[in-house]
Amino acid sequence: MNRILGAAVSIGTAAMALLASAPANADDASYLAALDAAGVFRSGPPNARLSAGHRFCNQLRAGSTPDQVVNDYVRRPSFGGPSMVDDLTVNLRPVIDIAQHELCPDTLH
């Protein structure tokens, strides 16, 4: 019985180690790094930038094409100077392309 329990703990520990190095975190980091390297969508905090990228991926997974995501993007006027919305309005297509490559490569055809 102790041998079985020990084996289960070992398997569980190995599984947790794999999960701790899950690619999702690396994907998030590589998405932010790719945005910065391309010089697009640099405004806004990292969590807002990530949220937008994941939202675009969800739209693509739901069947939208990248062009449809661009056309459906809600453009709101900003107040008080340049904002994250302004940044996305100008650079939306490259942001979607980067999101596809870094966050949701399953949406590439």
Results as ranks from 00 to 15, higher is better:
residue 41 F to N: 07
residue 64 S to L: 14
residue 33 A to Y: 05
residue 87 D to Y: 10
residue 25 N to A: 07
residue 51 S to D: 14
residue 56 F to A: 08
residue 53 G to W: 07
residue 75 R to D: 14
residue 30 S to C: 04
residue 75 R to C: 04
residue 26 A to K: 09
residue 53 G to A: 08
residue 70 V to K: 06
residue 92 L to R: 06
residue 21 S to R: 11
residue 49 R to T: 08
residue 62 A to R: 00
residue 48 A to N: 13
residue 89 T to D: 15
residue 40 V to K: 04
residue 19 L to A: 15
residue 65 T to C: 00
residue 91 N to L: 03
residue 62 A to H: 09
residue 22 A to P: 01
residue 96 I to Y: 06
residue 13 T to H: 03
residue 90 V to P: 03
residue 96 I to R: 02
residue 63 G to Q: 07
residue 39 G to S: 11
residue 97 D to W: 01
residue 53 G to K: 01
residue 75 R to G: 06
residue 82 P to Y: 08
residue 24 A to P: 00
residue 20 A to N: 13
residue 88 L to S: 08
residue 82 P to K: 05
residue 62 A to N: 11
residue 30 S to Y: 05
residue 31 Y to L: 01
residue 36 D to G: 04
residue 74 V to G: 00
residue 17 A to F: 14
residue 61 R to D: 08
residue 50 L to T: 04
residue 49 R to I: 01
residue 78 S to N: 09
residue 79 F to S: 12
residue 33 A to S: 13
residue 31 Y to E: 02
residue 95 V to C: 13
residue 17 A to K: 05
residue 66 P to C: 07
residue 46 P to Y: 02
residue 84 M to Y: 12
residue 71 N to I: 00
residue 69 V to H: 07
residue 55 R to M: 09
residue 15 A to G: 10
residue 73 Y to M: 02
residue 39 G to P: 06
